[in-house]
């Protein structure tokens, strides 16, 4: 991550694209100025609102606060080396938030992707009717912002308002969706509800792109739909599954809105429940340097995990 960011600004976003060169590039291609004019509208804001903040966060994360003059003195910042990082790594709240989100990811991501995959495969078989209805219904939650989804579900979790709790109550069950053990999974459920259809559609689109001839032969040999699905289809769409996994990992590590909404109705979600909530809490205590270090660490973990996962899967696939 540091690598890309420190290297990036050197090449991109020349504010004044050189105009005077007339020489064309390779076989009648456009001039350098023209190329720059195509690239700059994206790369200028990309540098300003992506790379500069990353650089700024890095810079801040190496600063510490100092103070002069007594009880209500004046503060200033100075270079502090890896002090903030050491603080973050020693912070037990940080590790519990990472552990919580890790548990969340290890369970929620595979469950969600498995359900998505099964649905995509079922939609791709001749076994199912009214496919359009299923497809649209499952995809519908993607149109719902995370905050609103969490608000909707929070009503279904609330012991006073929820018809689900009512119904289970008639069956003699009294689950506490907002209790200390359950609330993490209640948040996970909101994420699953939101993203399963989206992931399903990615996999389904990939399935649709497979030429039918590929499994005609297998069908003629009498292979069951089941066998075709697991032996032929799944391996072919493996890249889509990798992609959805990587996006899910990134999403999980950024989790904020859903638990923040549930926090409004449950005291079992602390102010440091996810790494992002911790960063925000630390920042609102004016400790921006440490919040920056937390952000950098979250980003690093994200990179390591998503690159690591891609490397791992591409090695397995022998690519």
């Amino acid at each position: 991550m540091t690598d890309t960011e420190t290297r990036a600004p050197r090449v991109v976003a020349a504010p004044e694209p050189p105009r005077r060169r007339r020489r064309r590039l390779g076989g009648g291609g456009p001039r350098a100025g023209t190329i720059a004019a195509f690239l700059t509208p994206f790369f200028l804001p990309f540098v300003l609102f992506y790379l500069v903040p990353v650089g700024y966060a890095l810079w801040q994360s190496f600063r510490v606060v100092r103070r002069t003059g007594g009880q209500y003195g004046t503060s200033y910042t100075t270079f502090g080396g890896f002090h903030q990082y050491a603080q973050v790594l020693q912070n037990s709240e940080f590790w519990s938030s990472i552990g919580r989100i890790g548990l969340f990811g290890v369970v929620q991501v595979p469950v969600m992707l498995f359900v998505a995959l099964v649905m995509a495969l079922l939609l791709d078989t001749p076994l199912l009717k009214i496919k359009a209805f299923f497809r649209i219904s499952a995809f519908l939650p993607y149109a719902v912002p995370g905050v609103i989804a969490a608000i909707m579900w929070s009503y279904l979790y609330s012991p006073q308002l929820s018809p689900v709790v009512d119904l289970l109550g008639h069956l003699g069950l009294h689950p506490d969706f907002l209790g200390p053990g359950a609330v993490l999974w209640s948040a996970a459920n909101v994420s699953t509800w939101l993203w399963t259809g989206y992931n399903m559609l990615i996999m389904y689109s990939a399935l649709q792109a497979i030429p039918q001839e590929l499994y005609e032969a297998a069908k003629l040999d009498g292979a069951s739909n089941w066998a075709i699905a697991w032996r032929i289809k799944v391996p072919i769409i493996a890249p889509s599954i990798v992609l959805t996994t990587v996006f899910s990992i990134i999403g999980t590590l950024q989790l904020y809105a859903e638990p923040a909404v549930l926090r409004q109705i449950s005291s079992n979600i602390s102010s440091t429940f996810t790494p992002n909530m911790l960063a925000y809490t630390v920042a609102s205590g004016n400790n921006y340097q440490q919040a920056a270090a937390i952000s950098v660490v979250i980003a690093l973990i994200t990179f390591v995990l998503s690159f690591g996962f891609m490397r791992l899967t591409s090695k397995r696939a022998g690519l």
Partner: peptide
């Protein structure tokens, strides 16, 4: 030549903004 000028300009911009 062009590439290195682009690079230089960008480097200057980056350093200035920091």
């Amino acid at each position: 030549n062009t590439a290195s000028r682009v690079r230089l300009a960008a480097a200057v911009t980056a350093v200035a903004s920091i």
